[in-house]
Amino acid sequence: MGYEQPFGGRFRMFSEGQYRTESSGTPQDGGSSVEEWSLSFGGSYSLSRAIALSVTVPVLFRTMNQFDLSTTHATNLGDVEAAAKFVIWRDREFSSRHLVSLLGGIRFPTAPLQYDSQGQPLNTDIQAGPGSWWGIFGASYYGRLVGALSLYASVMAYVPTEGRQGLKPGASGRGTLWLQLQPWSWLSVRAGSDARLEGVWHENGAVSPDTGGFIAFFSPAILISPATDWVVQLAAKIPVVNHLTGVHTEGTYASISLVVDL
């Protein structure tokens, strides 16, 4: 429960609500803190036992507070992401215990540029996206270990093009390592780590301060299946290692998601 293994004709829909906070900068350099609620909706379809395609459409609700006591609220479409998963190896055809997959995708610059009441673009920290195209590449491994214990690991690279207004996001590498225990068919618990190593961002050719660096999270989750084909997940990402560059912190991520097999 919780890991999607492709088999031909499987169609899933999912939605996720997530809350997170982030702050960067100092009072002297116009720093800000952002509180974000996001709502994502998507679907995935398995063309075969080897190939699955998915699309995720996020909507972001952001509030940015600055040291000058100004507050900006923005609600907008985020960057839509399309992804594909190719299972390149499994240990056996049926009831596989080990799967190795390649992952790839594109994140589209669908988040519109947002303007203030004077017609000036809002601060980049509150824009729902940088206006970049992102290439996504990676690989994953799923293995059933012993009994009800399973493992999932993945590494991903996100490579952006230059975005709007001279903004060039930093490429990032992301890693995931989760252990999941499913004592009953309707309940699983998961624990692991997510980590991100990100390059600095550039703005008009100059390094943007307080961008890039490394952060790692402890990632617990509970997955509940209240009915056949339905899975509800409650998850958190708690930062435990913060080596983000400059004055930059991220808070705990909390999310609830729902997956439905159609």
Partner: peptide, 21 residues
């Protein structure tokens, strides 16, 4: 229903509360 929620939310809006100047 979720689709409608997304469509309405994604239509986009923003507001500002000025700080000090």
């Amino acid at each position: 229903r979720w689709g409608w929620v997304l469509l309405v939310a994604a239509s986009g809006c923003n507001s500002e509360d000025p700080g000090v100047s």
